[in-house]
């Protein structure tokens, strides 16, 4: 495993474009009071995300600021999302939303700051993890492939392009 360190954080997209991307995001957009596109993730959030993707397949990627392997996955997801803006991707940080600026900078460096993402907004993290999947132990990165009928498969560890290609053959890699 090779970790690419991001020593400089670059900002690619102008603000107007960021907002534009948020509006067309599949999960439905709502304007936050913050400059970033990070939403509170509470106990009901995952159910809401699933409703927003009703009848549609999507991928969930859970990450945290403190997780080095997560950066490898975010980099790959950022590239996929850039190549294919229709890629149905839900990114959730398990850090407290109090750390949103740090998370936003990291997402920005992988060109994921333009899409709506979520951050844990309840210190009782066990309950939030349970709302995603009672069988998840909290290891990161953690990901889920939801099929159109919302049956799902889980994965712990860094996702590969091949795994995503298997579930989303149409995605432009």
């Amino acid at each position: 495993m090779t970790i690419k360190r991001t020593s400089t954080l670059c900002r690619f997209l102008p603000k107007a474009l960021l907002v534009g991307v948020a509006i067309v995001s599949a999960a439905g957009a709502s304007f936050a009071a913050h400059a970033d596109n990070i939403e509170n993730f509470g106990t009901q959030s995952f159910a809401q995300i699933k409703s927003a993707y009703e009848g549609k397949p999507f991928v969930v990627s859970l990450w945290s600021i403190d997780c080095a392997p997560c950066r490898v996955e975010l980099k790959m997801l950022g590239e996929l999302k850039k190549n294919d803006p229709d890629f149905a991707l839900v990114v959730i940080s398990t850090d407290s939303i109090e750390n949103r600026e740090e998370a936003a900078d990291i997402l920005d460096s992988y060109e994921l700051a333009g899409i709506k993402t979520w951050m844990f907004a309840d210190a009782f993290v066990e309950r939030l993890r349970y709302s995603v999947d009672p069988l998840w132990h909290g290891e990161l990165p953690r990901s889920y492939f939801f099929k159109a009928d919302h049956s799902f498969e889980s994965h712990s560890g860094i996702l590969t392009r091949e795994q995503i290609g298997k579930y989303f053959p149409s995605i432009e890699q």
Partner: peptide, 9 residues
């Protein structure tokens, strides 16, 4: 435990 991830545990 085959895992390329942080267990934080």
């Amino acid at each position: 435990w085959y895992i390329d991830a942080c267990p934080h545990h």
